[in-house]
Structure formats: structure tokens, C-alpha cells
Amino acid sequence: MNKKLISFVRDVYQTNDFIPLHAPTFSGNEKAYVTDAIDSTFVSSVGKYVEDFEQHIEAYTGTAKAVATVNGTAALHTAMHMAGVKPGDLVITQALTFVATCNALYHMGAHPIFVDVSKVSLGLCPVATEAYLEKNAKLNSDGVCIHKSTGQRINAVVPMHTFGHPVELDELLAVCMKWKLILVEDAAESLGSFYKGKHTGTIGDFSAISFNGNKIITTGGGGMVLCSNLEAGNHTRHVTTTAKVPHPYEFYHDEPGFNYRLPNLNAALGCAQMEVLPTFLKQKRVLAEQYKTLFSGSHFQFVVEPEYAQSNYWLNAIICPDTDSRNVLLKETNEQGVMTRPIWQLMHRLPMFKNALKGDLTVSEWIEAHLINLPSSPSMLLQ
């Protein structure tokens, strides 16, 4: 199977050169729009492309307000700040995630509680979340969720849509409502993914999208906060713009803010990428189906979208029979110039989060030991 996989990937991308996991594709108006931004001299956080890009995202996702930021971590930081996460708070999230989720919490002075993921979505499991809260939390007389053993407030739940596959949002939202918690979606990987017809990132009060160079569309570096209502969205934009109050010439800032606005140059790239997003999504679904066929009948299980969702298939993945076969496949593909990767090391194994509170992580540990990501760039050959 390993040789068959390598041959398949090289046939898809029609090259004997190194094949990355997910490379950016520029096939539209990217150069024209970036050049126009340069010619305008508005290359920083003020310029028409920033607002145009936000409007593109609003129209595509259906969110009330989108606020462009310099990167996905800044978007996460802003989203959790706007959700009311404070220093010392506890936030439920998954150990099976990219480190940015937890880095944003760390720099806020908040602390993660790691709860297990679902084999269905690879994202935060609502059953495990409810079980952890039943055992470890209580609502005080003011209706605030408190951790029984530490006395800290549990303020929010932050699921990540792993590889673009939407988590079980209705069930997680029900848990949040019962325990008076705020749902903040880490939708960094899931632009173009839909949960029961609704775009990911539009169910929680706030969410974050990433436009890093390896995402389904890119602005080079960039992110976006999705806000569930216009008032919150306008406040979010204000906070990300150093909280500067508009004035013809005076500098006055009415609250602590962030210098997180996306530069116009990056937004110009994003506007062009949004124009070809439907093509990328089509290509990636064709590739996912071909991977599914390739591994059909083998000992490797291709990871498919949950039945309730439509995934962007940002990164395709397989579940290997065991860790040994996973390691052999990783070694042989990478030696042949076909990039494959294991999933991230679980967050509680990292030194800065080793003492974090956690529940049972059996499923997360099993996925960590078995999963491999495969080359997933869009390809014109997959129209």
C-alpha cells in the first residue's frame, strides 16, 4: 500500500519533485489585486481590500460580522477575549489540537481543561464534555460554573473542527446552555465546511478562522473573527484596532485593545482567493473520494466527513492499523519526497501544559497513535 500511495500522489500532482502536505494555489487575480494595493499606497491595516475581504467572508459564511486579523492565533485570542474569558478562568478544549488553541489561552492567563474527542468528528466530544462537568463542576448560587476542586470559574468551551470536519455542535451547544458556558468555535481549519447547512463558526457566539499559507485559502498570514451579532462585531473591530476612538486628528483609546488588524496587502490576496474557493472545494472533494477509493478494502481507514456535515476536507487523513504501520508509512513516504505527517502531539504532553486539568483522553491517545495526514493541496487535475 505504501508504494501504491506514493504512486497515486505523484499521479495526482504530476511531478517527481517534493510534494508538500498542503501548498497554496494562486490561479486567479492574486497578483493583480496585490499590485493594486501596492499602487494605492494603502498597504497596512487601512485600505479597501480589508473591508472587501470581510464582506466576502460575511456573505459566504452568513455570519453577522467578520473582523480580519493578522493571523489565526490573534483571531482566537480576540474571540475568547470578546467571549469574556478572563485571567484565571478555565476553558474546556481538546488535547488533540494545534498548539495555537492553547497558546491563545496561555497568553490570556487562562487555563485549558483537556477533554476527549469523538471518533466521529475528531473534535471535542459532547458526551465526554458533559461527563467531565457532571463529575467536576457545579453551578453556584449566581449560576456561574465552578470547578469543584480548584474553585475557578469555567467560562467557555472551545472545540476545534479538526482538519475541517465539523464537531457535533448541537450537542455541545446543549451542554453549554446547561452549564452556562460560552461556545467559541476554533474554526481555523474549516472555511468551506458546513454543519447541518450552517457554516462552521456561525453557531458559537464567536469563532476564529485562519488564512495561514497552508489553509484552504491564504492571505499569507491572516485570520478572521466571526461574530454572531452586529453589535458584538463592531466592538470586536474596535478592540482589534487598538480601541482608537475615531477623530479627525486626536489619539484617544477608550479601552485596552489589540493591534491585530489585517494589512491591506494580505486582504487583497484573500479577496482573490475567495473568488476561487468554490473551485478549491470541488477539487478537494474529488481528491477525498479518490483517496477513499484507494484505501477501500485495505487495512487503512480513510477519515470521512460526519454524516451530519459537509467538510472542506482541508487535510485528508487515514487511520493506520497500528503504530508500527503508521511509523513505516511516515518513513517511506517522506523518504520518497511525499510529505505525510502524524497528528499533533497531544497538548497535555507539552511542557507548558503538562499540569493542566484533564479528563479521560483514551480516544485522543488512540487517534494520536494511528492517524496520518496525506497531501491535500487542490489540483487542477481534479476538476
Rank of each mutant, 00 (worst) to 15 (best):
residue 127 V to H: 01
residue 200 T to G: 07
residue 253 H to S: 15
residue 291 Y to T: 07
residue 125 C to E: 08
residue 244 K to P: 04
residue 240 T to A: 12
residue 135 K to L: 11
residue 255 E to T: 15
residue 202 T to P: 04
residue 186 D to L: 12
residue 179 W to V: 10
residue 3 K to G: 08
residue 256 P to K: 14
residue 331 K to R: 08
residue 56 H to S: 11
residue 144 V to H: 05
residue 194 F to T: 14
residue 91 V to F: 00
residue 97 T to S: 14
residue 56 H to I: 07
residue 318 I to D: 01
residue 84 G to N: 12
residue 223 G to C: 07
residue 293 T to D: 07
residue 122 L to H: 03
residue 258 F to C: 10
residue 107 H to D: 15
residue 226 L to A: 05
residue 355 N to A: 09
residue 148 K to A: 12
residue 17 D to P: 03
residue 47 G to P: 02
residue 358 K to Y: 04
residue 326 R to C: 06
residue 264 N to V: 11
residue 200 T to M: 08
residue 73 T to C: 06
residue 76 L to C: 05
residue 317 A to W: 00
residue 4 K to T: 15
residue 125 C to N: 13
residue 194 F to C: 07
residue 276 V to P: 00
residue 277 L to R: 04
residue 351 P to Y: 06
residue 79 A to R: 07
residue 208 A to Q: 09
residue 38 I to S: 03
residue 171 E to Q: 04
residue 255 E to L: 10
residue 63 T to G: 02
residue 138 K to R: 12
residue 181 L to V: 10
residue 347 M to R: 09
residue 239 V to T: 13
residue 88 G to H: 06
residue 14 Q to H: 12
residue 338 V to N: 01
residue 357 L to E: 06
residue 382 L to Q: 02
residue 48 K to Q: 13
residue 85 V to R: 01
residue 231 E to L: 13
residue 168 E to Y: 00
residue 251 F to W: 03
residue 359 G to L: 05
residue 259 N to R: 13
residue 313 Y to E: 05
residue 12 V to T: 13
residue 350 L to I: 14
residue 79 A to W: 03
residue 92 I to T: 05
residue 99 V to P: 01
residue 213 G to N: 15
residue 308 Y to K: 02
residue 10 R to V: 13
residue 337 G to Q: 08
residue 242 T to P: 01
residue 10 R to Q: 11
residue 221 G to V: 15
residue 114 F to Y: 13
residue 352 M to L: 10
residue 328 V to W: 00
residue 94 Q to Y: 01
residue 91 V to E: 01
residue 32 A to S: 10
residue 255 E to W: 03
residue 81 H to V: 07
residue 335 E to M: 04
residue 170 D to K: 05
residue 307 E to M: 03
residue 258 F to P: 04
residue 152 Q to H: 14
residue 134 E to V: 14
residue 298 S to A: 09
residue 10 R to S: 10
residue 307 E to Q: 05
residue 94 Q to S: 14
residue 363 V to T: 08
residue 88 G to C: 08
residue 337 G to P: 03
residue 344 W to M: 13
residue 82 M to I: 10
residue 367 I to T: 02
residue 217 I to W: 00
residue 214 N to A: 13
residue 160 M to G: 14
residue 225 V to Q: 07
residue 13 Y to M: 10
residue 156 A to C: 08
